[in-house]
Every structure is written in structure tokens, then in C-alpha cells.
Design a protein around this nucleic acid. Structure first.
Lengths: 343, 343
DNA sequence: TTTAGCACTCTATAAAGGAGAGTGCTAACA
DNA sequence: TGTTAGCACTCTCCTTTATAGAGTGCTAAA
């Protein structure tokens, strides 16, 4: 079966109307709302063909058609025109993000809120991967008796605090000495490198000053722990509740459950091989829980290096055009802003 | 109408059974499940009395009774025995919190997760109020060209990072000088005091070193901004979905909506006048959205000073006994642990 | 190739008819 | 006087039945 121009128009009409109304679309509706210049009967014939091709399906015999996953896929790949954002929306993003970036943590929050507000979907934003950014510097500051505050700065600007126990009789000078050693050894190295071999080197260097060994070991542990390194920030979780496909609480629970599994979220967002926009429709997500959802993600780069990613999650019946353009605009904006931030 | 011993037992039976089953409770059920030694008919008479007193009500004529808000109130005040936690549960709390407190931020997370797991309700934990804790020390560290990292440590151990812009030609020594001044002026003072008058003093002191004025001003701004000072951490939001009273998405939306309003959450949790356990049932919460919910909060103290609070939110039909004991045990544990932490 | 007409299918909604649970009242009983 | 058994009554919930409406597929005509 060939995909001629009119079939495309019919498919597009079905997708657009279904996205807008969440109701199965009948031939009559299409003839009325979309000006194809043919009668419902003709459209019915085309629809039968489209169904044979697996692009649309019928919930039951006497209902209209809804797009199948392949139908959405075809729409996204071939029919969809990326809606460019209105000036108002662009301004909205720019005034809210571009001018306010100060700390990495809060800008991730901001991003997720913006994206969810603009799309009415749930936004997922991965914090810039701390693990991959090399050490920049380590400071050890006095904190409380027998405790020190370790401030770790990565080259990407991320800052981490850790409180560590130190012996009662560790002096300010001891701290100074340890941090000097750490700085000289760690600077410019990624976590992986530190883990893989450098650790023993530092260890032996410090061995000269026996008292400090245990401190140094404990001290490195939290930074190296890969568990805390990156996390996913959600925005507009409740937008899910507005989707008619989740008016049943049981279905809702399934989807919302994955929002509490940090691990799963990370896997969903972790940049796939190719950079740029990725659309995963329904079953294309390997996760059981979101078979009825689509996930749109995009990565952003600085100097060609992938930093992190932004995504939206919603029902397969989502406004792909809008969602794609928001996510894409967001990531390019972020790329630019962060570049400026680092220079 | 008098509240005799048997009426109390009947009311207690109704509350307990309704909490367990979420179904209106009939006289027959009470006679069967609870050993009151009287027939259903007698219980029916008592129930009619309890209804006259406004403690229970009927959804419709041929249904059993459910506790009214006043009924719950009477139960909580007079009938409820605080269930003491099992050793297993205590151990669970202690191994998970008591031994792992390191950083204030993460322990709040931990607390909320524990409480929600133990109660199957939604936990709310207020971060220890930063605003009220006096300055302990300020460090200014080099960060990036023309940016510095300011690390503020409060006396309660809270650590805050702020990235601030500094002039291109600010030297390491300048930073040192500013931080010395700030430390000497701010140490031991609360934000309120700083705001109310000290600001100008610091300003004039720094005026001698003109270049640093603008830096110092900008530097203080983020710490003083009351907006970021405390926040509420939620745990087990999705437990709401398991409650039969929220199987309707519309009702659910109402409740979940307030979880996105940070402002409202804070107000709910902000310690009321009296310290200790507070139970607010249904309409006793002034918030429109949670008329069908009850909120249990408790504060914890260190050396008699109220630090912060922990709460749970759930439908009015909640296991008050369990919830109260978990919240109370949690706050006393936290009080002890934090005391140890500071000493 | 397109279209009008029509019989057919299926859902969603309303109406109708029990079954079941629970009550309130009355009268008997200890 | 307090308690209990019995019974008529009420109301919800579930199932069944009927009906209207939307949409299709097929056929035959344009």
C-alpha cells in the first residue's frame, strides 16, 4: 500500500484532532473540521487503508479511529511541522532562565518548572553530570569541634558540601596540609580516574602523616560515591492528573510510581548515543509503566560536549509539535547560557 | 446526654472499624467484631444517641455510621491509646536516621521517607529554620575568574553556598579581608538583627575600601533573602493514591495541588504556639483543599528551643494512633540525635 | 474514482427491577 | 428500667433491559 498525499492529510487530521479532543475521530468529523474537499465516504476508504497499514486503529467497531503508535511515529517523522514558539513564550523562557542563572542547582529547578508550564506535561531535567566533570578544587574548612566542612568544586562549577569527622586533635594546619595534597593530586581529574588508581597514590603520600590517613579515606568516600552524583528534577508532576487518559487512579499510580524511583528516571534521561531531539513513543520506551506515554528528550552541549538533558513525559496522545519545540528551544537556550556562564 | 462507658466503647469500635475498612459500620458488625456483650439492637440505640451528640453520622438512611469530625476529635482526645511502636519499627528508625546524620539537608529527606513508610501517609518535614539560626562563619573561596564562592555556616550546622560576582581585579587578599570583616561583625547574630541595623555598620566599615562595597552588598543579599530560607520536604506523596477516599481524580487533584505550593506547606507546618503533638482534624485545618484531611504535626526541640517540625497528612479516616506515635517518636529521636550532633 | 444510501454493530446512558444491608420502632422479656 | 427479638421500611448497589447515537463497511450509482 502506498502513502499518497491524501492519506497523509487524513492521518494528520486524525492525529491533530485526537490530540486536541482525546476522542476517537470519525470520518464525518474530519470532513467537517478539515477541508480535504472530499466526502466522508472517501475518507472512510482512506481510513480503512490506513488501518490496514497499521497507522490507526479502532477502539471498537462503531467508534472513530485513533492513531496507533506507528501512526504517531509517522506523524512525528514525516508530517509534523515543528511549531515555533511565540515571541511571548520565548520571552518567558529568556526572562526566567537566561538572566537568573547563578547556581546550578536552582537553575535546574527553574528549567523544569518552565518546561512543564509551557507544555502542560511533566518535565524531567537531569542535573549536569557531576561525575564526569573533573575536580577543580577542594577546600577543608573548620566546622565544629572534631568535624570539618569539605567544599568540593568541579570544573563545571558544581559545588558539593560534605561534613566529615576528623579527630579531636586535628589542627587547622593538618586540614591545610591534607587539602593541599588533595588539590595537587586531584585537580583536573575525573572521578573515574581517581577511583581507578590514584587513590592508592594519595594514600601512600599521606602515610607519612599517619594521623591523617583515616581522615583522608573517609573524606574521599562521599565524593566518589556514584549514588549521589546526579539526580533528576521533576516539574509539573500534577499535569498528569489533567490528562483524561489518567482519570483512572490505577493507571495514574503506575505512571506516578516511576517518578519516585530516582534510578529509573536517570536511566530514562541519560543521553542516548546521538545528541539532539529524541522522541520515544509508547512501547519504544522499554519501561513497562509508561507504555501509554511518550518521552521527548533533548541534550544540550557546551563546545560539542554533551552536558545534560531535558525531557517531557506525557500520554502518547500529546502535542508533539509543541513539546518538541519547547524542549528544543530550552536546550539550545541552556547551551548558550551555560557557555556564557563558564566564560 | 451523658457519655457513659458503653457509649465510649461503641464510638471507639466505630472509629477503629471505619479506619480499618473505610466502610460505614453497622450495629451488627460491631456486635460481631467487638465483644461488647450486648446485642446489635442495644448498640443501635447507643448509636442513635451518639448521632444526636454529633459524634457519628450516616451517609444515608440505610447505611452504617461513620465518625464525624467531632467523633474523631473525641477519639483522639479521650479514647485513643498511643500505640507504642514495635521494636522492629524503632530499630528501623534508629538504624536509618540516628546513625546516618551527616548533613542537614539529606537527613530531612531521610526523615520524610521514614515517616511516610511507617504510616503510609504523606510526610511533611520542615527544614530546620535557617533564618533563626545565627551566623557561625563565612568563607569566601576563589571559584572562577571574577566569581567567588561564598560558604555560609550557621550555628545550627546548616551550610549554604552562594556564587557571587566579584570584580575582575579582586584579589585573594581582598576576599580575605571582606570575609574577616563579615565574620567579626556577623558571628552569633541572626538574620533579623543583621537586617535591622547592622547592615549599615558593615557598609561604613567597608567604605574605607571602596572597591569592595558593591561586592559586599551583593554578597549579603542572597543570605538575607527570606524566600529561600526554609522549605518543606515531602515523602510518600503517592500514598495518597492508595486511600479509597481519593480514588476520584478530582478530589485527588485538590489535595495534591497544595503539595506544589511551597508557601502553603510552610504555613501548615510552621510550629503553632504550643510545642509537642498537634492534631488538626478536617475543618480544623483552615485550608479549603484539605477539609477531608487530617494533619498531625509535632515539633522538636534542642535545649528547649523549637527547631523545626515533622508532620503527616492523610484522609480524616487515618490511623491516628499509629500516626501520632510515629510522628512523636520521630521528633524525640531527632531532638536527641541533633543534640548529640551539636555537642 | 468518488459518493450517497443503508443496514449493521457497538457503546454509552437511562430506566427498571431485585438483593442486601442497615435502620428505627414496637413489644416482649429479665 | 434496660435489653433484646422481630419486622417493616429505606436506600444503595448491582444487574438486566431498552434505546438513542455514532460510526462503519458495503453496494450501487454517478
Amino acid at each position: 500500500m502506498q502513502m499518497d498525499e491524501r492519506k497523509k492529510k487524513v492521518l494528520q487530521a486524525i492525529v491533530l484532532d485526537y490530540i486536541a479532543t482525546a476522542e476517537p475521530v470519525g470520518s464525518r468529523t474530519i470532513a467537517r473540521k478539515f477541508d480535504l474537499g472530499v466526502s466522508p465516504a472517501t475518507i472512510r476508504n482512506e481510513m480503512a487503508d490506513l488501518e490496514d497499514m497499521g497507522l490507526i486503529e479502532q477502539p471498537h467497531t462503531s467508534a472513530g479511529r485513533i492513531p496507533s503508535n506507528s501512526g504517531y511515529r509517522f506523524y512525528v517523522d514525516c508530517l509534523m511541522k515543528m511549531a515555533s514558539l511565540t515571541d511571548k513564550e520565548k520571552l518567558f523562557i529568556e526572562t526566567n532562565v537566561v538572566h537568573k542563572i547563578r547556581e546550578l542547582e536552582s537553575f535546574v529547578q527553574q528549567t523544569s518548572r518552565l518546561v512543564s508550564q509551557l507544555t502542560n506535561l511533566t518535565a524531567l531535567v537531569l542535573t549536569p553530570v557531576k561525575a564526569n566533570s573533573p575536580f577543580h578544587q577542594v577546600h577543608l574548612l573548620p566546622y565544629q569541634p572534631s568535624k570539618a566542612l569539605m567544599v568540593v568544586v568541579k570544573e563545571n562549577g558544581a559545588v558539593e558540601n560534605h561534613v566529615i569527622d576528623i579527630g579531636e586533635n586535628t589542627t587547622q594546619e593538618d586540614l591545610q596540609r591534607v587539602s593541599t595534597i588533595l588539590n595537587s593530586k586531584l585537580k583536573g581529574l575525573t572521578m573515574e580516574k581517581v577511583k581507578s588508581g590514584l587513590l592508592s597514590e594519595i594514600y601512600s603520600e599521606l602515610a607519612r602523616q599517619k594521623d591523617l590517613i583515616s581522615m583522608a579515606m573517609e573524606l574521599l568516600e562521599p565524593i566518589l560515591d556514584p549514588h549521589e552524583q546526579d539526580k533528576v528534577v521533576l516539574g509539573g508532576t500534577l499535569n498528569m492528573l489533567n490528562q483524561p487518559e489518567f482519570k483512572d487512579v490505577e493507571k495514574l499510580k503506575n505512571v506516578l510510581r516511576i517518578f519516585e524511583e530516582d534510578h529509573t528516571l536517570k536511566k530514562m534521561l541519560t543521553p542516548s548515543s546521538e545528541p539532539g531531539l529524541t522522541v520515544r513513543i509508547g512501547g519504544e520506551n522499554n519501561l513497562e509503566e509508561i507504555q501509554d506515554c511518550s518521552l521527548i528528550t533533548a541534550t544540550y552541549q557546551i563546545d560539542g560536549q554533551t552536558i545534560s538533558s531535558v525531557g517531557v513525559l506525557g500520554p502518547t496522545r500529546m502535542d508533539y509539535s509543541k513539546a518538541c519545540s519547547v524542549v528544543e528551544f530550552m536546550t539550545t537556550s541552556l547551551g548558550e547560557v551555560l557557555k556564557r556562564y563558564y566564560k
